[in-house]
């Protein structure tokens, strides 16, 4: 089982869209797929609209990717969090570490300016 990863560059911003479940089975593969998108000073939007569930291991993977990005002065923004994913991230404190955007278009407009 894997998370489907697709990417495109919109308004100069890399948008990585994920689809599936991020859990202990899929998170290792996802991490190695996500890290190449993060270069020095880059801006990456991770679109979680297609993600139905993020487990404990999945949240840790996202935070590890975020920590890599910080080391490279890159910025990661999460967008498209379902209500449940958002609640779990909030209750467990993970939400506090990330930049969260409400929707893709608004975020692209912000970063494009």
């Amino acid at each position: 089982m894997t998370v489907k990863v697709s990417s495109q560059v919109l308004a100069g911003v890399t948008v990585v869209a994920l689809e599936g479940e991020i859990n202990s089975t899929t998170s290792g593969g996802l991490q190695s797929q996500l890290l190449p998108f993060i270069g020095h000073g880059s801006t990456v939007l991770i679109d979680l609209t297609g993600i139905s569930y993020v487990s404990s291991a999945g949240l840790r993977t996202l935070l590890i990717v975020h920590r890599h990005a910080q080391q490279l002065d890159a910025e990661i923004t999460l967008v498209g969090l379902s209500e449940e994913v958002s609640f779990v991230m909030s209750a467990t404190g993970f939400l506090d570490f990330f930049r969260i955007a409400d929707d893709l278009d608004t975020e692209l407009e912000r970063t494009g300016r």
Binding site: S56, V88, A91, T92, G93
Partner: peptide
Amino acid sequence: YAATGPFGMQADEFKT
């Protein structure tokens, strides 16, 4: 006591 207990994240929730 954790809303996230069914996901096994009670430790993170309590620490938060």
